[in-house]
Each structure stands twice: as C-alpha cells, then as structure tokens.
Design a protein around this nucleic acid. Structure first.
Lengths: 327, 327
DNA sequence: GAAAAATGTGTAACCGGTTACACATACTAT
DNA sequence: ATAGTATGTGTAACCGGTTACACATTTTTC
C-alpha cells in the first residue's frame, strides 16, 4: 500500500504539501494539486486512518452504548445513528451493556484507548460520574444522564397523558399501568403522565413494575388479569410490555379490545405486526437517533451545540387494541 | 495521559522492556516486571491502542455487515457476535448495507483504511470478488459468499423439508411457499427443501417471491389468500414473512390454524410474541453468531480454522399457527 | 574449562500520518 | 521604492507504540 511519502515522491512535492492537499488546509498551488491528484490515482493511494488518528488524537468512531440490541427498540435508534454517522464519515461501534455498569465501564475505557470520538448512550446506569469526567463528547439518547450532557428524548409525560386519556375516553375504568424500571427517566415520566391523566377521573388504577422484556411482561400481565378480572385497560410503558399483555390476554381468552384495551409506548415496528395491531404512543425513534447523532458530531467537531436538550414530539397511533370511535 | 516512555523512565528500564512486559513477549526479569507494574499503577498507564495498531497494522475491530439492523433477524446475530468479540477483546463495528453493493464497498474500504481485523458478512451482494481479493479474514454468516470463504449456515434444506412435511402431516393440501429473494442462498435452499417435501404427495403448491419485509409480505399474502381461497397452508421462508401472512389472514377473517396453518423460518423472538405463537423452523442464531465470530478470530490470529463450513442444526418449534396433534 | 544456550536489556528505526516554523516569491498599497 | 500581505513549499519533529539487532551476563552442557 502506498503511503504519503510515495505520493510526495511521485508528484515531486513534499509530504507537507500532500498532507495540506488531503486536508484542504493551507496553500497548495494548482500545479501541485494536479500532480498530487495524478499520483494519488496512479498509486491508488488511500490515507492510513490509523496513522492520522495517532497524530490527531481523533478517530471517526462513535461508540453506541445500548442495553441490548436484541430488544427491538434499540435497533431502530441504532439504524438512525448509523445513517447519520455514515453521512458524516463516521462509523459506529456497537456496545451492548446489558445494563451492567461494569461492562459499560469496560467499553468506555477500551474505546477511549482507541481514541473514539464520542459516545451516544441509551442506558441509564450509575455511570453518570464516569461520563462527566470523561472528556469526550457524549449525548444521551432516550434517557437523561445528567444536566450537563446533551439529551434527546421524547415528550414522555405528555405522551403518557395522551395515551391514558385516550383509554379513558374509550371507556376504560379500571386501568393498570405497566410501568418500566425504577430510576429510568422516561419510565418515571410516563408513570407521572399516567397518574396525572387518571387523577380525579374516578378511575380505578394499579401501577405495577414491569421490565422492558416480553416474557416477564406477559407473566406479570397474566397474574394481574387473573387476580383482577375488572381490569379493562392496560397502559404499558413500552410496546414490548404491551405485547406481553396482549399475549397474556389472548392466553386467558380475554378479548382485545372488547373486554380489555391495551395501549403501548414506543411505536416500534413490532407494534404493527401484532394482531390486533397495537395502539401505541409512537416516538419518532428515527428522528431521535438522527438528532442525537448530529448533536454528537457537532460537539466532536467543536461547534457549539444548537440545542442542549431536545424533546421530540410523540404521536398517538390508534390501531386495534383500543376500541375505535365508530364502534 | 502517560505513555510508554513515561513508564520506562519511572521504572528505570527502557521502552523495549516495557513493551515486552506489556505483550508478554521475550525476556523480562522479575525485578523489571515489579518495577514496571508499579510504574503502570502509579501513572495509571493505559497503552495507546492506536499507536499500537499503527505499528502492528492490526486493530481489534471486527466489521459486521448486515443488510438492516432493524430487521429483527440481524440483532440476534449481532448480539452473539458482540458477546464473543468482547470476550476476545474485540469490538464490533456495525455496518448497514441496505443490500446496496456500493454502500457495502464503501464500508469495506473505509474499514480497511482503519486496519479493521476482519469482517463478518451477512449479506449477499455481488461483492464476492471484493471479498476474495480483500486480504483480510472474512466469515460469511447465514449465507454463503464463495467456496473460499468460511461459512456458517443452518441446515436450510433439511429445515424447510421438516417444516413443510409437518404442514402436510397436519393436513394441509394446498400450500403456498413464500420464498425469499432470488439469489440468496438460504432462500434457495429453503425452496428446494420445500419442493422436495411436497413432491409426489399430491399437494397443490404455489411458490411466490416475497422479500424479508413485513409489509410486503402481508400484502402479498393478502392477495394470494383472496385469489386462492383453497390455500390451507403457508410455508414462509422467514418469520417476518410468516408474520405478514398471519396478519393478512387475520385481516381477511381467516382463522389460524383452523382454516389456514402457517409455518415460519428463523425462530426470532418475534415468533413467540405473535398470537397465536408462530410455529417455525428455528435456527440457533446465537450459536451461529458465536461460531462465526470464533472462526473469524481464529483466522485473524493466524490459527488454522477448525472447520471451513459449519452447518448448525435447525429445530421445529411447534406453536399455535399449526394444528397440534391432540386436536 | 570452553563452547553453547538461555536470559535480560537498550538503542534506534519504523509504522504513516500532521504541523510548527522557516523560508521564498509574488502581489498590493502607500 | 518599500513595507506589508498573500501565496506556496519543504524540513523535521512529533504522535506512542513495536521490534530487529547488538550486546552483556548467567546458566547449561560435555
């Protein structure tokens, strides 16, 4: 593989000139440019990005930290991150943390040793301190890590309020809220939105902890539905949990939406694949991912951030797990 | 950040000795070891992996090329790849190719410039030639690229045969095969398995092209079911397509599995979330991913490969979209 | 007791870029 | 005519590791 010195020799200029040409920096005469271009083509020269990184202390790698890429929520974000990254010449390093602070730490350290340019974080560990003292750009996606870290989230509170209100409008009087894990900011916001929507409406409510996992959600919903036959509505804090609840209802022979209405949150692809289609408070995941990535790249490239905290609006997707008006 | 020269100075030895210590290579006396260990702790020294890479022309990055991480099939592979990679100190670079040969080429080139250590490829472009002339280790996962490239696949032919035979056993007499895209090796093998299973059984069959996409699959299935009311079985080449068919059947008021039985292929998480649960020919995706990654790492680290072509067995998962024996 | 092998260490070149700085020339302004 | 600015270029140090090679000392072998 040809290197920059070969190009310099072949084009009759110095490496500095070639480097200036490559980086569009400083003065390079037209003749020099032409000669260098020719040499580059001749030699099929490609700059060695590792050498460049060593010198500049910067790579074009972005670390994307997700709890588990198998959870269908995250690929939708990852996809958006990757698209924007590619557009700006970056590549994405995938890090599954399993919500394990240690594993997450490990990734942060290793990638730092590899001069990663920045991180997009979709996890909510106690590593807050780590991220702050890290002097690398970080953007929090879908969950807030710390006030000092740029964040892209949905309007979770409003979304939950909207979804819950819709359940009430459609006639639910005994609603269970399958809330997400404690301490996860969006989950907390959604419970708050739920509670606010329900307040003073004379609704019988039940708030139950429920992880963002299908199997666990199904089991929890099954138990609840058995123990409380009067439940006629489920507000789930995630589509995965809603899917679990739907499956549980089917298993118990409870008709959805006639006897039980269910509403999810997220708007992942899965929600439209279920039968009936899942009514859900859809986040614009793709948009969230692109915004977060653009913020990160801005920050990497030393521009001041256009915004520090972005809230993407949320949209109620009405499908088959709630009764439609016309019935 | 301390560098190796700082460590050398602080421990009173030369950089060569420190380097030998770090890499467990060559002779280092006990005293030197102790002094270096101390210095490393003192200075909180972490080797600069970029500098190392420049010198060794090797990184610990693995490129994972997938068509689209949003397709739930691929995260399950990605997860396995990542787990094994982490175990061996590698990190995974995520590349969505969108089945676009050009995009794929772009990734291959860029990552080569970054000294990526090897590739795991789950796409089936015409880039065969590229991969061959690439003098980097490559492993093909879930699809064969070329005889010269180590490959990990499922027993697709046998699986399709098994699934189709099961449909016949359960009474299907007019089966449609939703086959995957042309030229994709596993899709071809599955059609072949289907055709073999059906041969001479007096089964009315229909083989239809159908991409691995939910929406398209639903639309195609809908049309087929409307045009051919006698169809009583669907053998889909992927769970995604099967999910589309299931949704189509529901939409048309066709009861599954009473009037129509459906069987998928892949065994992704989605299959158990549907109602009824999808009967499917399950691949052991996690295992496939781990084997592929281990092969790649073996190859990167210069060991001769234990196997060149691995076929992972497949398992029929009987769930609710087929009639169970006891009915 | 001499030769051979094993152990231990340091110097300096190398990987392939970037860039500070010195220097040269051409143009512009006064 | 002269200073000042814009344009253009090259040398060499630097980023932070690895490693070939030379050399010294100790241990083993016969």
């Amino acid at each position: 593989m040809a290197n920059i010195r070969d190009v310099a020799k072949s084009s009759g200029v110095s490496v500095a000139t070639v480097s200036r040409f490559l980086n569009n920096k400083g003065y390079v005469s037209q003749e020099a440019k032409a000669a260098i271009e020719l040499a580059i083509r001749d030699l099929n020269y490609k700059p060695n990005l590792v050498a460049r990184s060593l010198s500049t202390k910067q790579t074009k790698f972005i670390g994307l930290i997700v709890p588990d890429i198998v959870n269908p929520f995250f690929p939708e974000l990852a996809r958006a991150v990757e698209d924007v990254a590619l557009q700006y010449g970056y590549t994405v390093v995938l890090c599954n943390s399993d919500e394990d602070a240690e594993k997450e730490m490990h990734y942060i350290e290793t990638l730092q040793q590899k001069y990663v340019a920045g991180f997009i974080v979709t996890t909510n560990e106690s590593n807050t301190a780590q991220y702050q003292k890290l002097d690398l750009p970080v953007v929090a996606l879908d969950r807030k890590i710390h006030a000092s870290i740029p964040t892209v989230t949905s309007n979770n509170h409003e979304g939950a309020h909207m979804g819950t209100s819709y359940l009430i409008e459609q006639g639910c009087r005994h609603i269970v809220c399958l809330r997400g894990p404690r301490g996860v900011e969006p989950a907390e916001d959604r419970v708050a939105g739920f509670l606010e929507a329900v307040k003073g409406k004379g609704i019988n409510t039940l708030v139950v902890d429920c992880p963002f996992q299908f199997d666990r959600s199904e089991a929890i919903a099954k138990r609840l539905l058995l123990e409380n036959p009067s439940i006629d509505g489920v507000f789930a804090s995630s589509d995965i949990s809603a899917a679990g609840a739907l499956k549980a209802a089917h298993g118990l022979g409870i008709h959805v939406p006639e006897k039980l209405q269910i509403i999810g949150f997220d708007g992942i692809g899965l929600s439209s694949m279920l039968t009936p289609g899942l009514t859900t408070v859809a986040q614009d995941l793709y948009k969230m991912g692109t915004i977060a990535t653009r913020l990160l790249i801005q920050s990497i490239e030393g521009q001041s951030l256009s915004e520090k905290e972005v809230r993407v609006p949320v949209q109620l997707m009405i499908r088959g797990t709630t009764r439609s008006e016309e019935r």
